[in-house]
Write a protein that binds this DNA or RNA. Structure first.
Length: 502
RNA sequence: GUCCCCAUCGUCUAGCCUGGCCUAGGACAUUGCCCUUUCAAGGCAGUAACACGGGUUCAAAUCCCGUUGGGGACACCA
């Protein structure tokens, strides 16, 4: 239930103490508690973009508050956690440039902590042994569901007082059954839950491993997490976790629940909506900065601004401007942003990111033969035409190597026998220049077109095909500049050859 | 079924807290035009939204209630 009069914008006074944590840090008179946040993914697959966005908000807040950002791997699910997934998380975080200050911690390395705290709860009477079998529980849940009842645990072992269970038993937390738990959410405001909807959740499995709802609490408490910021899907876990903090005698952190990312059909984003792994976007030729910009803007805004540097993001971020509703992931806008970043990022950086793609396309020798400066020049040549690095590979291909592969249709259309003598004359003019000069060659070209009584396009297209092999390319004279005098003349001669033998 | 969250153009959003400046602004996509040696990029213009119903008020996108719709959670998953 939404608390009346509470919520996100309740009163100015109230807001001051919970919305603007930034003020707290900066205003004198408040105790300087350092912000400590964490990203706690489970290693059960690839790092997906929703996870990256959660990490991003945490990271932004930590950096802005000069706080600490912790990476914690929640791998207490033995059957689903893998080392490859842990590596995927680390690789993904590094690729988008989200550096952490502590960790990565693995929960499986902290087992004793969970077990000892669980025993503490048992001793204090906050927990009890449950000897119900998993299969029985499952059956009862199904039955309750078909009867239209709540599929909660019925609490049958709660008052049995089992002290030394034989065989496998699980430890359950004695959840409060009365009153209400109020969550004061950073993003959604005050939310109240009636405790009577709570059931006694298992905190220690019969295999001695802790469950999620218990290990998060122990870790968040022990790691002194001040703000637990996670996906919306955890909102209803919060009233289950708060009583555990309390039973353990730990202070309760602030919570913030980020709205979900949806697919085009408004269902929670999943594989069937297309690529969801962050690394898939790297492979599709997206720049990490574009990815970050897109993901942050999906659910957060700063007036009408669309493009942000990382520094701006850190400075301008605030919980107040985080959206409360879910957002549909829009690949078109991401693509536009990527194109924007390709156009405006330093060309040498784009070139650097492009190299692996060129190598992947079989151009490793060609790339090695060229200088970094030339590569950057190449990026400048095609940057407003390629929306991804993958597309850029295709645009850039004609500029490697001495000769060029002619597109058959283009050659047939533009390198006709009738063109041969005209191209020959143009070649002679260019050959007269001892060195390439964009301005001079362009003037000469235009003068030639005029003298011949041609239209610009009539000559430009055949030359374009001769130089690039295709009918679409950047400006002719920029192309020549990147090719250089020798290759320009060489390819022109080859083009004439082809035209005369057509 | 129960509980929780959410609701402005097709999409991301501004505006909502502190009602009037909103004949609702920006961005992506889309349409048309301009520029032009091709392809882009760029420039200009256009189409397009306050879910619905009740209140409160001189005045509601903004506050309250309800309805509808969407999403999430209810595991010895996280």
């Amino acid at each position: 239930m939404k608390v009346p009069g509470g919520g996100r914008f309740c009163t100015t006074l109230f807001r001051a103490c919970y919305r603007d944590t930034g003020l707290r840090m900066n205003s004198p008179g408040f105790s300087m508690t350092q912000v400590r946040v964490r990203f706690a993914p489970s290693p059960t697959g690839l790092l997906h973009i929703g996870g990256v966005r959660t990490a991003l908000f945490n990271w932004l807040f930590a950096r802005q508050q000069k706080g600490v950002f912790i990476l914690r791997i929640e791998d207490t699910d033995q059957s689903r956690s893998t080392d490859e997934s842990i590596q995927a998380i680390i690789d993904g975080m590094k690729w988008v440039g989200l550096d952490w200050d502590e960790g990565p911690f693995r929960q499986t390395e902290r087992m004793e902590l969970y077990r000892s705290h669980a025993m503490k709860l048992l001793e204090k009477g906050h927990a009890y042994w449950c000897v119900c079998k998993a299969a029985e529980l499952e059956a009862r849940r199904k039955e309750a569901e078909t009867k239209g009842l709540s599929p909660r645990y019925d609490g049958r072992c709660r008052n049995l007082g089992i002290a030394n269970p034989s065989g496998d038993a699980a430890l359950r937390f004695k959840a409060p059954q009365e009153g209400r738990t109020v969550v004061d959410d950073l993003i959604k405001g005050k939310i109240a839950f009636d405790n009577n909807v709570l059931d006694d959740l298992i905190i220690l499995r019969s295999n001695d491993y802790p469950t999620y709802n218990f290990s998060v609490v122990v870790d968040d408490a022990l790691m002194n997490i001040t703000h637990v910021v996670r996906g919306d899907d955890h909102l209803t876990n919060t009233p289950r976790q708060i009583p555990i903090f309390e039973a353990l005698g730990f202070p309760v952190p602030r919570f913030g629940h980020l709205p979900m990312i949806l697919g085009s059909d408004k269902a929670r984003l999943s594989k069937r909506h297309g690529a969801t792994s962050i690394m898939a976007y790297r492979d599709m030729g997206y720049l990490p900065d574009a990815m970050v910009n897109y993901l942050v803007r999906l659910g957060w805004s700063h007036g009408d601004q669309e493009l942000f540097t990382r520094q701006e993001l850190i400075e301008k971020f605030s919980w107040k401007n985080v959206q409360t509703s879910a957002a549909v992931f829009n690949p078109d806008k991401l693509l536009w942003l990527n194109a924007e970043y390709i156009k405006t990022s330093p060309p040498d950086r784009v070139a650097q990111a492009l190299v692996p793609f060129l190598e992947g396309a079989g151009l490793q020798d060609e790339v090695r033969a060229m200088s970094a400066d030339w590569l950057a020049q190449l990026v400048v040549l095609v940057k407003e035409r390629a929306k991804t690095l993958v597309e850029m590979v295709d645009w850039v291909r004609p500029y490697f190597g001495q000769s060029v592969t002619l597109d058959e249709e283009a050659a047939k259309k533009f390198l006709s026998p009738a063109m041969a003598p005209i191209l020959g004359k143009l070649l002679a003019r260019f050959e007269a220049f001892p060195a390439f000069s964009k301005q001079e060659w362009e003037d000469s070209f235009k003068k030639f077109v005029e003298e011949e009584g041609m239209k610009m396009g009539q000559l430009a297209q055949p030359v374009r095909v001769a130089l690039t092999g295709r009918t679409a390319s950047p400006g002719l004279f920029e192309v020549m500049e990147v090719l250089g005098r020798d290759r320009t003349l060489f390819r022109l001669r080859k083009g004439i050859e082809r035209a005369s033998h057509a």
